[in-house]
């Protein structure tokens, strides 16, 4: 039996993974894609394990994607909804997690508005911790599912040029993708208004562009980000109309990218704000494939995390 050799107990961010660990997660996810094409979309790999979805921010797609992933692996899943929980009654994050841990879960999937919250959990929790988005820090499973989608389309993950366009400042998706592509040695352009694309990102090795055409020229992948009005993105540029005029990707601008370039978006879409509808629905767009790959990638992560064996735990 060949062991996977994956030696992580938690998934806190792409930053903690080596390039070969990323490859391994994607190889495993590739094998899990097939499970979702079966009539009975279920395998017994995590039978008897419990996964807790602990979401302190609104999320439908990520939460349900983790839920489906856990269920396809036959794990039991508990959704912990922060809006109706005791957190509203003043319980601290630590007490909430300790209470949940009294039920012996194996994996806790957490989304929290504070960067570093998942790492904080690892200081006292016994479960494996999976970061499903923490503040403006990281969203590792999104970057991994993007990488799987890229690999399926291009047959490789190295030697590609990427542009990420939009609200880079508030985007954990952008950060995780930037880190991932740097580990793969791919050049990354960050594109958007100066207020949302701080120059400090050049210190992380990216190139910053304030002009959309210049930023997407000859790239293989255009990754659009959502204008996050709920995070106050509107305060960073004069109007949506102006943003759209300068940074919306449309067929004309997209034509300056590489001939077989693809367009990606983590969703939800603001159609005709950051992305032209006809482009979002074109065959160059892999947006729905991204959603589909989210399940396989999350199955791979839940499967690979190094849990204590049952014998050791009891």
């Amino acid at each position: 039996m060949e062991t996977s050799g994956f030696n992580q107990r938690h998934l806190l961010g792409i930053d903690h993974l080596s390039a070969s660990e990323i490859d391994l997660i994607l190889d495993t996810a590739d094998s899990f894609v097939e499970v979702s094409t079966r009539n009975i979309k279920k395998v017994p790999a995590l039978k008897g394990r419990t996964v807790v979805n602990l979401f302190f921010e609104n999320s439908t797609r990520t939460r349900s994607s983790f839920e489906i992933a856990a269920k396809r692996l036959s794990a039991d899943l508990i959704n912990f909804n922060s809006s109706v929980s005791s957190l509203k009654k003043g319980e601290s994050l630590k007490d909430t997690v300790l209470t949940l841990e009294a039920m012996n879960p194996h994996i806790i999937v957490i989304r929290h508005s504070a960067a570093g919250a998942p790492r904080y959990l690892t200081t006292f929790a016994r479960s494996c911790i999976v970061n499903a988005g923490d503040g403006f820090h990281e969203h590792p499973t999104q970057a991994l599912l993007d990488a799987l989608t890229i690999r399926q389309r291009f047959g490789k993950l190295r030697g590609l040029k990427i542009a990420v366009v939009g609200d880079i400042l508030h985007s954990r998706v952008a950060r995780s993708n930037l880190i991932l592509h740097q580990k793969m040695g791919n050049p990354v352009n960050l594109v958007g208004p100066p207020s949302l694309v701080p120059l400090e990102f050049e210190r992380m090795g990216a190139r910053v562009f304030y002009d959309l055409k210049a930023g997407v020229k000859d790239v293989d992948i255009v990754m659009m980000l959502r204008v996050q009005e709920e995070r106050g993105a509107g305060n960073y540029f004069p109007s949506i109309r102006e943003y759209r005029r300068l940074f919306e990707i449309n067929a004309e601008v997209f034509a300056t990218a590489a001939p077989d370039a693809i367009i990606m978006h983590p969703g939800p879409l603001n159609r005709d704000v950051e992305i032209e509808t006809s482009l979002a629905d074109s065959d160059r767009s892999v947006i729905l494939q991204q959603v589909n790959n989210g399940i396989a990638v999350r199955m791979a992560v839940l499967y690979l995390l190094k849990g204590e064996s049952n014998e050791a735990a009891h």
Partner: peptide
């Protein structure tokens, strides 16, 4: 994914296609 000893493994084995 159908092995009967997965819960005994610290490192899960590699999954092939």
């Amino acid at each position: 994914l159908f092995r009967d000893d997965l819960h005994l493994q610290e490192h899960h084995p590699k999954v092939e296609k």
